[in-house]
């Protein structure tokens, strides 16, 4: 693909620290290619990440980048965007960072429809800390903190974001990088809160522990379970069992938060000058 990766990656920080076969690098690559295609200004873009494997993403990217506290990336991003709405603000988070400790911020950022693009790396596990179950670990799966099987239900994060007010919701997967690039590009260009869940394999702490296997086997698993959103929509509930839809799952146009606040400023200031 005709994109100058060197422009967007901090060369001196590479190769990255993610494990062999980890899908995070594929998501990072998809983001970089999507950003290039979006035509957005690199110098007017801030990438913010939290803690965990996904948290490392910001350090590899050649933008203004901020590596914050666990789960709180969206709160810092909200401050950046509110303070200067001209900036493109992107949050990179994970299923632990974004759905567990940061879950409330995801809900409320969605509700505000603030113009932030979230790329959530969902590898179904806490990888960095050694394989504890996350809110995205499927029920019954084994993790270091669910040695007898996980009794928790996992989220459907895309449904969560949609019902909370996000105006762009999509799901991509490391097995489908082309589709993921297109999805992230559309999310970047969407005006409003764009939530993109990316399925990414963790062979070390999830795949091997749950009999799926290594990176290649996990991609095969994706191949067998991913269904395009259009096809998924036409399927009966029984047919959908165990399958995962990818693509743009939801998109509507609604007034964006910082635009609305600017309107408040304009109204108040106009009112004051009329006094």
């Amino acid at each position: 693909m005709d994109v100058n990766i060197d422009k967007y990656l901090r060369q001196d920080k590479m190769p990255h620290i993610w494990c062999p076969g980890c899908g995070h690098g594929t998501v990072l690559g998809s983001f970089v290619r999507a950003f290039d295609q979006s035509g957005l200004d690199q110098e007017k873009t801030v990438v913010i990440s939290g803690i965990g494997c996904s948290g490392r993403a910001s350090g590899y990217l050649n933008f203004d980048t901020l590596h914050v506290t666990h789960g709180r990336a969206l709160t810092f991003a909200t401050g950046v965007k509110m303070a200067n709405p001209e900036l493109n603000v992107i949050v990179m988070t994970g299923d632990g960072d974004g759905a567990a400790i940061g879950g409330n911020h995801l809900i409320h950022s969605s509700r505000r429809n603030i113009d932030i693009t979230v790329v959530l790396f969902n590898n179904n596990i806490y990888g960095m800390t050694g394989g504890q179950f996350s809110p995205m670990t499927p029920t019954g799966d084994t993790a270091t903190t669910s040695p007898y099987g996980n009794i928790d239900q996992n989220f459907d994060l895309c449904e969560l974001a949609k019902s909370s007010g996000a105006t762009f919701v999509g799901r991509g997967a490391s097995y489908q990088p082309r589709k993921m690039i297109k999805l992230i590009k559309e999310g970047l260009l969407h005006k409003g809160f764009a939530f993109i869940e990316t399925l990414t394999q963790c062979p070390v702490n999830y795949g091997k522990r749950n009999m799926i296997g290594g990176a290649r086997d996990m991609l095969k698993w994706q191949d067998e379970h991913l269904v395009p959103d259009k096809k998924y929509e036409k399927m009966d509930p029984e047919e959908r069992e165990g399958l995962i839809s990818t693509g743009v799952l939801y998109q509507v146009s609604k007034e964006e938060y910082t635009d609305k606040y600017q309107q408040v400023i304009n109204n108040v200031m106009a009112g004051e000058s009329n006094e």
Partner: peptide, 11 residues
């Protein structure tokens, strides 16, 4: 086809 280029997690 570029499948490898786009899928490689390590560029």
């Amino acid at each position: 086809c570029e499948n490898c280029e786009l899928s490689c997690p390590d560029f």
